[in-house]
Design a protein around this nucleic acid. Structure first.
Length: 585
DNA sequence: AAATCGCCTG
DNA sequence: CAGGCGATTT
């Protein structure tokens, strides 16, 4: 019924997918891999310039800065250790190489550094005032946030305690996002765990609301987190400015402190420190780059190579805040806007509706978004891209699938966040499988590029691609087995004219096929498939009836014929939400 | 060498 | 459906 009409009409869009293919085609396997590790390759280029800036290069300065930050924090806000972003979230279970790569990838964190910020520093006389103002603003924000958050927190079910011992990593991601180290290599797990625990204990403190955040709706949570981070960053920047101007003498012994401080205060986004060790750096870079791309509304993101990421986002999904954490996010985005005035940052934070997302919310609410910069930065995408990314997006609630239930739940519970987040970046879910099966009605031999074009919500990599190709291989296997079976039956039944062998919707063969690829029968099988099926059956019949099946490779010619009969796939299949749209209500 | 494919097996 | 394997293709 409905589905039919849709499909039919959509079928007209023949070339559309070709275009898609071209686009996708640009991505070589290698590049894809790169993207995985660091979705933002371009970051490197842009970063270099920033990296050079070495105002932090000097340990003395750094130490001072750290000191100031500490003070400021004490005054204004709790340093909530939000995780900068964990690029690792995207690791795909199947490909371990990614992990290795990530570590080895010497990404640069250019953007992190406040290069342009220098301009501000030059500011001069007004610095103090500015600083003051910032502090005040921060206080106000804090109050607002607290007011907003507290009430809700009470309402929500506090399940701060770690649940079970599932994958440690994932849990950490969810519960300890605040920990910057979580993102880093596994070796930091311990520390991250530690931090998480610490956080929990401090729940009562007004300043440390990380726990509380968990109880809030995901949306609010995200807002809170983002805001928090951004504020922290802003402060850091302000501090930096001040330091630059005021502090010129390096004490020199604070270096260590500075470091430790950074660790504790992940927000460190502010921390530009170029001197950081490789690992740390990598982290930043990974996380950072992406974000920038974002929306920072007015924020001048210097590097704009970001376009790429967008491509992947082409099919944004409804903004579900489902996963608060999806991505590798990073908070640095904010930090980076170095050239942006501190004031600007604040104002943006306060009033920003960057990508529309927050716009709805009043400043206060937005403030609540303290979620990791990750989101903050990417908002629009965040949601569209990663989160939904694969797993959830595509997967509508197909009939079955206990796996994705949470997805739909969306913002409701933390669960949604928890469950969704980990997978968001990759992996094929039942929804994808179902979609692939339906696509089989149109194409028996899809190319990897075609698959990429039709599964926009999937982050392809070798493993994923192979898996999907394997699916189609399996589909074909079943298909050909059925064909051969029925062809032989026809032969034994005495059929002599292949023309009489036509696959109709009421035929047994069709039922078998439909049962396999369209179990719920919730999809209208296209006529073209019936035609191809008929041709295939006839070819098998001819081969068998003429005794060609004695040849070990007698099926090859048939395969070759069938491989040329793929049809165009309806455009609607390109939608990540495809199933929902196609299936009959 | 890498990507695919088909076949077989669990 | 996923793995493994060998063959084929590019």
């Amino acid at each position: 019924m409905d589905p039919n009409s849709i499909l039919i009409s959509s079928q007209s869009g023949t070339c559309s997918h070709l275009a898609e293919l071209c686009v996708e085609g640009e991505r070589s396997p290698a590049s894809q891999e790169l993207e995985k590790d660091s979705p933002f390759p371009w970051g490197q280029a842009s970063s270099s310039s920033l990296t050079d800036t070495n105002w932090f290069g000097d340990e003395h300065i750094q130490a001072k800065r750290a000191r100031v930050e500490t003070i400021v924090q004490g005054i204004c806000l709790s340093p909530n250790p939000l995780v900068p972003g964990n690029a690792q979230a995207r690791d795909s279970p199947c490909c371990t190489e990614k992990r290795k790569r990530k570590q080895s990838l010497p990404m640069q964190q250019g953007p992190l550094k406040p290069g342009p910020a220098w301009g501000n520093r030059k500011g001069g006389p007004g610095v103090r005032e500015q600083f003051h103002r910032l502090k005040q603003q921060l206080r106000h924000l804090q109050q607002h946030i607290l007011q907003t958050a507290e009430p809700r927190a009470a309402a929500q079910d506090p399940r701060g305690s770690e649940q079970g011992q599932g994958s440690l990593r994932e849990k950490q991601r969810n519960s300890c996002e605040s920990n910057p180290w979580a993102t880093d290599s596994d070796r930091h797990q311990d520390s991250s765990a530690y931090l998480c625990g610490a956080e929990k204990h401090r729940v009562s403190e007004p300043e440390h609301r990380s726990e509380e955040l968990r109880f809030l709706s995901s949306g609010t949570q995200a807002l809170l987190e983002i805001l928090r981070k951004e504020l922290t960053r802003a402060v850091s920047q302000a501090v930096d400015s001040v330091l630059q101007k005021v502090l010129l003498n390096p004490p020199g012994h604070l270096t260590q402190q500075g470091r430790s401080f950074q660790r504790l205060v992940p927000e460190g986004g502010s921390e530009p420190s170029p001197p950081m060790g490789g690992t740390y750096k990598d982290l930043f870079t990974l996380a950072t780059l992406p974000r920038r791309t974002q929306p920072q509304v007015g924020v001048p993101v210097g590097n704009l190579p970001l376009v790429k990421p967008l491509d992947s986002l082409r099919y944004p999904i409804s903004p579900r805040i489902s996963k608060s954490y999806q991505g590798p996010a990073t908070n640095y985005p904010l930090a980076i806007p170095s050239h942006v005035q501190e004031n600007q940052i604040l104002s943006q934070l306060l009033g920003r509706g960057p990508n529309g997302h927050w716009s709805d919310n009043p400043p206060l609410d937005s403030s609540s978004q303290s979620h990791p910069s990750i989101e903050s930065a990417l908002q629009p995408w965040v949601w569209s891209q990663q989160p939904c990314p694969l797993p959830f997006t595509t997967v509508p609630h197909l009939e079955s699938r206990p796996l994705l239930p949470s997805v739909k739940t969306e913002h409701n519970s933390l669960e949604a966040i928890t469950d969704a987040t980990p997978f968001s970046s990759e992996g094929l879910n039942p929804g994808h499988l179902k979609k692939a099966k339906l696509m089989f009605f149109f194409t028996r031999y899809p190319s990897s590029s075609l698959l990429k074009a039709y599964f926009p919500d999937v982050q392809f990599n070798r493993c994923i691609t192979s898996q999907m190709i394997k699916w189609f291989s399996n589909f074909r296997e079943f298909y050909y087995i059925q064909m051969e079976k029925f062809a032989r039956q026809a032969v034994s039944d005495g059929v002599t004219n292949p023309k009489v062998l036509v696959v109709l919707r009421d035929s047994e063969l069709f039922r078998a096929l439909n049962m396999h690829y369209n179990k719920g029968n919730d999809f209208e099988v296209p006529d073209c498939f019936l035609e191809i099926a008929s041709v295939t059956l006839q070819e098998f019949f001819r081969a068998v009836s003429t005794g060609r099946d004695s040849d070990p490779s007698w099926k090859k010619p048939i395969y070759k014929i069938i491989s040329k009969l793929d049809s165009d796939i309806p455009e609607i299949f390109k939608s990540s939400r495809y199933p929902q749209e196609v299936f009959r209500s």
